[in-house]
């Protein structure tokens, strides 16, 4: 049942990304291009997604998930180096390509060879991150 819900969620997510135009890299780069021909679409997508999710968060108070033990606890409000460095690196890749993980996967069936290469590179990056993270932690201790 949980897997079925997950499939449904992925389907809606993918449809939403497609409808909103977020699988089109020019729309994403257009949003980031504040000094060029700025495209505000992404702000509408974010706004549209945040509203139902904000309602959902309110609804979690004092309740349990339908098919789960507990709702995810809020992360510690700690802004570590990994959050800042990681988000900066991600932003650079996002700006260069116009793709983030969700749309990259959602466009796999129609994104051509380039889209597949992007996924392979992204997955490779994800695979090496645990090692990279511990290396960074060691350096931080040494410094």
């Amino acid at each position: 049942m949980r897997a079925f819900i997950s499939f449904l969620v992925g389907s809606l997510f993918g449809l939403g990304l497609l409808v909103s135009g977020m699988t089109d890299t020019t729309k994403v780069q257009g949003w980031l291009d504040v000094f060029g021909d700025w495209d505000p679409t992404l702000a509408f997508v974010m706004g549209g997604a945040i509203v139902p999710m904000a309602v959902a968060w309110r609804f979690t108070i004092g309740r349990k998930p339908v098919l789960g033990a507990a709702f995810p606890t809020p992360p510690e409000p700690k802004l570590g180096r990994n959050l800042i460095l990681g988000s900066t690196l991600f932003g650079m890749g996002w700006g260069l390509s116009g793709l983030c993980p969700g749309p990259a996967v959602a466009s796999l069936s129609f994104g051509g060879t380039g889209g597949v290469i992007f996924i392979v590179a992204m997955v490779t990056g994800m695979m090496i991150t645990p090692k990279l993270r511990s290396r960074l932690d060691q350096t931080a201790v040494a410094v």
Binding site: V9, G10, L15, G16, G21, G48, A49, V51, P65, C100
Partner: peptide, 30 residues
């Protein structure tokens, strides 16, 4: 494009809301 963006955004938000309320999970692609 803005209207389609908003409509698609709502679909994404509803998907994330279902994942949270039913499965108790965060819908983060990465």
């Amino acid at each position: 494009d803005w209207i389609m963006g908003l409509a698609g955004g709502v679909l994404i938000g509803v998907a994330a809301a279902i994942y949270l309320l039913v499965n108790g999970r965060i819908m983060g692609a990465s």
